[in-house]
Design a binder for these strands. Structure first.
Length: 930
RNA sequence: GGGCGAGUGGCGCAGCGGUUAGCGCAGCUGCCUUACACGCAGUUGGUCGGGGGUUCGAAUCCCUCCUCGCCCACCA
């Protein structure tokens, strides 16, 4: 540290080191360096939306990835953390469209047309596309930026097309007219996963219809959607329902549209198992065009399908003159009014039911019959199996169940979207003319383009011919011949699912793929387990023959203090960049990680970041303290000079190294952070540094040098252990303290990120430094006695800075250095050491433990009565505990059944309490008469 | 309706068969003791959601109930 400031100021330090890392190419993952001795470690980033901005969710997610990547580098692995962004079809298109509308440029995207609109989106991407990447850099993310990918890169587009083509060829992709989830706001189909069920308050409308063949016979029907009545093409009852047994096969008169001739409003009454006769009246109106279940009933009974709605959710002419043109929700009310006017509405009751919402647009989806592309998922068995048998591990493991459940009930995936921003479907369509056949076209094109044989499939589909091809010349030819390319694009996730290998150069078998696929860890939120994780696994097996990652770590969701999800609309989502500006990136990282238990939601509280900031400052100052001591950097530790405190801190360090390594291996980041925090703050700073001041003040230069060497040893470990969490400050300290000095560049000489991860001591090292349990116990009990001594002062109302005289009667031999340590720690003016023969003067408060006895001679200043009360209270507590242990031991069954070890423990505990009781008794007896 | 997760001092968490139930924050009381007031020392709070059971022994295992959160599910 060139400049020693009292307070750590992160901004300049962060700038400096991030530029340094980039300039030195520290983040590059190089397949050529991978070997048996240097194994590969890889992560692909969950690509954020290209036009997105950093949220706390990203902070959590990417900090975890960065910790994993940095730890792996320190473990000597060749690390590739591959970054990039996602084109995010609907989200981006809607955002751009909205902005253009707001700016008054257009009313609808149709005003621009496909080409010009796409130009605008690319323009937008150019303007805002880099923001989130820059923000990730501020966080300290150690991605290999030279490999940044975008899901609409030309190469990536080729991958998507190739995969589409391949699946089409395999017959897994098909086109069909089916019920899909239609979003009237975005005017596109959605997959089932993009639909969110929400409770909706509405009404259940009861209306009646007359049976044509039995005038005077009326049936009452309950529905939540009266506006779809004009689309009803049947009534259905359960075949087992005795109430309606005689009516099946007859007809009812549909009330709407009113202007329609009665004969055209006759609909059959059919019997279908699907009808629940407990619900409503047991009579179901069947609207095949606007309900998935109804569609199926319709199919079973060959009912006509009458679509009464437009793409945008307004009613069309088939809904009748009154409803036509109205929005579906307005039409609902209007239809109810019409029923009232007709006198057939019996009642409306308030009713709450589940309605599917488009998760992007936030409006109810409309089940709608339309022509779409579907995918029957490939490689399903392997994908299910690998998670079930834990070849691919989920952390926490419970998500495996969720995955299993979904994989078991897999439905085909609707992959086409009626959008413009995305990968256009590589299929050309033509209405088949007379004598035109798929075979004919295949032969013709194959003759003209011999190389196209494996890149072209022509199929007949009803009246149409479909030519799927990834061959550019064939594509041109088809256009020239009057074929028209399908105007739909693919679901964004149809490109994202290729991410782990498409970003590494697939379909070529690149060096990168060979070295880094499958990736090691994937870090993502459980909310995209189906959207992304599951699909990547299937794509991985299908195209690489192997799983895409070995581990998936599912983060929690970031919530605010009140436990609410962070959201823009609630305004409870703080800007991470502002937080970084205020507290520093390390502070944010540490604050978030400390409060992020494995797989548990994270409550975000700025206080945690403040704590992180304070922690960095503490670390800074502890290193500053070291620097003020001068002396050689990382000198030799001479075992002959090690104090009890030195040995104790080395033992505790060893413990911390083990704890942190184990926690990180299990993805228990918060525990790793907590271990480090505790070790560094409570053990190293609060006890060791203070105790070491005795040795540092020593005139014995050897002793002093040895302690400085211990400090360097511990700090050198501490900064490395912290580096994955706090990359910036640790880099600064690593160089500032000169720990990088004698190391080769690839082992920490250049950057701490290549310094080896600390290892626990070997048995030999422990023996060499004389580290054993006895050392630990003795120092611990020394510190415990210090605490008791401090308590004495506090109890007698002495300010902690008041330097008084203490007397110590040690339980055994005591080294002179320890006397000085105790003196400093209790902040005594003098500490007089007396022998066991020393008699206690009357009225001197004392405290004792295994280490010895401390006396605080106050020469008559103490309040005898309150001291008596205090000791009496203490005795009371001891008596309770003694009682508890005695009762246990007295229980014959206890002695019989309990393991010997536990029995011994209890006996020891009793002895300890009794000893303590004796001490308190004598202290009490020692009080002067009142 | 099914599945999952969580209920421990004011707040956030740890402990998951045997400890005097821990930790951090906040609170309170002293302190600017020359690394750090983004700090130091000391300290008040809980009997572990309710009930039942297993056990020599339960916050920890089992059963049941309650509360909260998430996911899945075509009852109109």
């Amino acid at each position: 540290m060139t400049e020693i400031q009292k307070v750590y100021e992160p901004q300049a330090v962060e700038e400096k080191w991030y530029s340094f890392w980039l300039a030195e190419n520290c983040f590059a993952g190089n397949p050529a360096r991978v070997s048996a001795k240097r194994p590969a470690y890889s992560i692909v980033i969950p690509p954020p939306n290209v036009t997105g901005v950093l949220t706390l969710g990203h902070v959590l997610n990417n900090t975890i990835q960065d910790i994993l990547a940095r730890k792996a580098r320190m473990d000597g692995k060749e690390v590739l953390w591959l970054p990039g962004t996602d084109h995010a079809g609907i989200a981006t298109q809607t955002a751009v469209e909205k902005t253009l509308k707001k700016q008054g440029e257009i009313k609808h995207r149709d005003d621009l047309g496909r080409e010009r609109f796409l130009e605008k989106v690319w323009e937008w991407k150019g303007r805002y596309g880099g923001i989130i990447i820059q923000q990730l850099k501020k966080l300290g993310a150690s991605c290999d930026w030279s490999r940044e990918r975008f899901t609409m890169d030309p190469h990536y587009n080729q991958c998507v097309q190739a995969v589409f083509f391949d699946l089409y060829k395999k017959g897994l992709i098909y086109r069909g007219k089916r019920m899909v989830n239609w979003c009237p706001a975005s005017r596109t189909a959605l997959s089932d996963e993009e639909v969110e069920m929400k409770e909706q308050k509405g009404f259940l409308y009861y209306f009646r219809v007359e049976v044509r063949e039995k005038p005077g016979t009326w049936l009452t029907i309950a529905t939540t959607r009266p506006e779809t009545i004009p689309g009803d093409t049947a009534l259905a009852v359960n075949p087992k329902d005795p109430r309606y047994a005689g009516l099946v096969g007859l007809h009812a008169v549909r009330p709407l549209p009113v202007e329609m001739p009665l004969e055209e409003r006759l609909i059959p009454i059919v019997a279908d198992e699907h009808v629940d006769f407990e619900f409503g009246t047991g009579v179901l109106k069947v609207t095949p065009a606007h309900d998935k279940a109804d569609f199926e009933i319709g199919a079973r009974h060959q009912l006509p399908v009458v679509d009464v709605m437009n793409q945008d959710g307004t009613m069309n002419v088939l809904a009748g003159a009154t409803l036509a043109g109205l929005d579906r929700f307005v039409a609902r009310k209007k239809a109810a009014e019409q029923l009232t006017e007709l006198g057939v509405l019996e009642k409306e009751e308030p009713y709450t039911n589940n309605v599917g919402f488009s998760e992007r647009a936030g409006v109810p989806v409309e089940p709608r019959l339309s022509e779409q592309w579907f995918l029957r998922y490939p490689s399903r068995e392997k994908s299910l199996e690998c998670v079930v048998n834990e070849t691919l591990r989920f952390h926490p493991a419970r998500w495996a169940k969720v995955y299993e459940h979904w994989m078991t009930g897999l439905q085909d995936w609707c992959i086409s979207r009626q959008l413009w921003w995305g990968h256009r479907i590589p299929v050309w369509i033509k209405t088949a003319g007379p004598s035109e056949t798929a075979e004919g076209w295949t032969q013709r094109l194959a003759a003209e383009f011999p190389a196209s044989a494996t890149e072209l499939v022509v199929r007949a589909s009803g009246q149409e011919l479909h030519a799927a091809t990834v061959h550019p010349e064939v594509q041109q030819k088809l256009s020239a011949e009057g074929w028209v390319q399908d105007s739909d694009v693919l679901d964004t996730w149809f490109s994202s699912w290729l991410w782990p290998f498409a970003t590494m150069g697939w379909p070529e078998n690149t060096e990168t793929l060979k070295a880094f696929y499958p990736t090691t860890d994937l870090v993502t939120g459980p909310d995209i387990i189906f959207f992304w994780v599951a699909r990547m696994i299937m794509a991985g097996y299908e195209y690489m023959g192997e799983m895409p990652f070995k581990n998936v770590y599912f983060t929690g969701i970031i919530r605010d203090k009140q436990g609410r999800k962070m959201s823009k609309s609630l305004g409870n989502s703080p800007d991470p960049l502002e937080i970084i500006g205020k507290f520093g990136a390390d502070a944010l990282r540490f604050g978030v990680m400390r409060s992020a238990p494995l797989g548990q939601d994270v409550i975000y509280d700025e206080q945690n970041v403040e704590l992180g900031r304070n922690f960095c400052n503490k670390l800074w100052n502890a290193c500053r303290f070291r620097q003020m001591q001068g002396g050689d950097t990382e000198g030799e530790i001479n075992p002959a000079y090690l104090t009890g405190d030195d040995r104790w801190i080395l033992l505790r360090l060893d413990q911390a190294v083990q704890e942190v390594s184990a926690a990180l291996a299990d993805y228990r980041f918060n525990e790793a952070a907590a271990s480090l925090y505790r070790f560094f703050w409570s053990e190293y700073c609060d006890w060791y540094i203070e105790a070491s001041k005795a040795a540092l003040a020593s005139t014995d230069t050897e002793r002093r040098a040895s302690t400085v060497a211990v400090i360097d040893f511990v700090l050198g470990h501490v900064v490395r252990l912290f580096h994955p969490f706090l990359p910036f400050i640790t880099e600064e300290l690593w160089h500032g303290l000169g720990y990088s000095r004698d190391l080769p560049p690839d082992q920490g000489g250049k950057s701490i990120m290549y310094a080896p991860w600390p290892k626990p001591f070997t048995a030999e090292e422990k023996a060499y430094f004389g580290l054993d349990d006895a050392v630990d116990r003795r120092s611990s009990s020394k510190y415990e006695l210090v605490t008791l001594g401090r308590n004495l002062k506090a109890q007698f109302g002495m300010p902690s800075n008041k330097r008084v005289k203490f007397i110590l009667r040690a339980a055994g031999e005591i080294a002179p250095i320890d006397v000085e340590v105790v003196r400093i720690l209790v902040n005594a003016e003098t500490l007089e050491v007396v022998g066991s023969g020393w008699t206690t003067p009357k009225g001197v408060p004392s405290a004792a433990n295994a280490f010895g006895e401390l006396f605080l001679p106050l020469t008559g200043l103490i309040d005898v009565a309150s001291e008596r009360t205090r000791l009496a209270k203490e005795l009371e507590k001891i008596a309770t505990e003694v009682g508890k242990v005695r009762d246990k031991l007295a229980n014959p069954e206890f002695a019989q059944k309990v393991p010997a070890k536990v029995l011994a423990e209890h006996e020891q505990r009793l002895a300890d309490w009794l000893a303590k009781e004796k001490q308190v008794h004598s202290a009490l007896a020692n009080l002067p008469e009142a």
